[in-house]
Amino acid sequence: MTNVNLEHLAGRRVCSESGKSIGYIEEIIAEQDGDDLVVTEFHIGIFAAFERLSASTIGTALLDFFRLRRRSGLYRIPWDKLDITDPAHPRLLCSDDELPGFEDIGNSRISPAPLHQRDS
């Protein structure tokens, strides 16, 4: 069993099988599985740094302002299609033909869990 540091994946470039860059790792999605927290999905997009901030509308507004927003470039890669044994060099495990199937269509972002409601 190997252990890896997930934080090293943040912002890493991911290349397709043919060597073309498809984007950077923006987010790692995990879900509760019984007692365990398991990684289910990796989000790969073009604006890694921006993604961490994009809960704010202003982020996307700015992107729009500079005409940088092309949200079509977001891929949701299932956990078993990305080899993260070496977090500094993540490798895609699917062929180029499969890739469009993982593309995120529309704006179906995971809705954020509000933190601020905890205070009362």
Binding site: M1, T2, L37, V38, V39, W79, I84
Partner: peptide, 9 residues
């Protein structure tokens, strides 16, 4: 990293 199972935090 686990064989055939998703990575566990």
């Amino acid at each position: 990293l686990r064989q055939g199972k998703p990575p566990r935090v």
